[in-house]
Design a protein around this nucleic acid. Sequence first.
DNA 1: CGCAATGTGTGCGTTACTCAACAACCTGAC
DNA 2: GTCAGGTTGTTGAGTAACGCACACATTGCG
Lengths: 178, 178
Amino acid sequence: MDRRVLKSQEAIKRAIIELMTEKSFDDITIRDISDRANVNRGTIYLHYMDKYDLLDKLIEEHIGNLRELCHSASEMTFQEGNYVWFEYFAANHLFFTTMLNTKSAAYFRSRFLDLVVQEYKVEVDVTDGQNEGLSEDIILQFFGAAVVGAVEWWFRNGMLLSPRVMAEQTGILLDRNF
Amino acid sequence: MDRRVLKSQEAIKRAIIELMTEKSFDDITIRDISDRANVNRGTIYLHYMDKYDLLDKLIEEHIGNLRELCHSASEMTFQEGNYVWFEYFAANHLFFTTMLNTKSAAYFRSRFLDLVVQEYKVEVDVTDGQNEGLSEDIILQFFGAAVVGAVEWWFRNGMLLSPRVMAEQTGILLDRNF
DNA sequence: CGCAATGTGTGCGTTACTCAACAACCTGAC
DNA sequence: GTCAGGTTGTTGAGTAACGCACACATTGCG
């Protein structure tokens, strides 16, 4: 892929995330973004319809990356798999902190929850074992919300624990229940 | 000026400075620079003849900036004027540290000394005062080398003192002698 | 020695980005 | 009201940077 595209998009995405840490999404103008990204205003329209599309694409990209990490970690235990995720969270903490802290970004939270539920679906077994007879949907929503909540708490509290500890502990809780 | 030019040149200049902190100038290839700068190799040739020209232009740019700072600070005392310089040194410490530490870059040292001597020329007066009868050239070379030496020492020792302290102390020594 | 690998400088056609300008639209101030 | 100031989305023309490929050094290794 062309270097220029990558660099422009990288700068634009970084810019909007930074700006969202400083003010509400509604107050951010396209000009704000182009200024911060050090890119011509028109360049943004080359890649995105408007700022909403930009945010959408940004969210979808991260959701997609998380899904991919999930699949490439399909052989792992929850502990190991979670570690990959928490590493990714830490590497992109600016994005996730913003997305899970600003209340305007509830959309991301639900996309995130959807992903978790979807990815855990293959893991749960209600035909055998401790979960025999239970509702698959309830289990998925229950532990999906649990994981999302733990991640939210982690970011809300400034990521005081290491990714490894977060992954291990949540991993234990999941392994125990699936 | 076109954003693209500025960004490319900025990246290229930063790249070569970084690389010079890691290996000798002779061992740095154009490809190294373009890789590090994340630009096409051909882009470098759009702006510079070769890596020597690149280094030259980089040096001249900083010498030019220092000269400009000097002139815009012509009304100041040595203490005040030096402070502007040391601020600039600190802001571009990567460049200056490299240029004054790697022994291959003796050329920069002499360009730097030339600048200092040139800029101090207007300050010295051998027709009156304590310097009456002394050789202007000797005074200039003497205190020029003194300032350059102090700056070199500062960088060599990891810039332990603040720019302000460096400026004040060297300023006092110069004010006392001009 | 030959020969593979790597770097250099250059030219090619294509494309992403640039700046500047535009009309249409809000918004707040007088 | 309206008028100035700012944002938006879009256009057009020019150009910097792109990837790719080439011929020609240079280097090191069997």
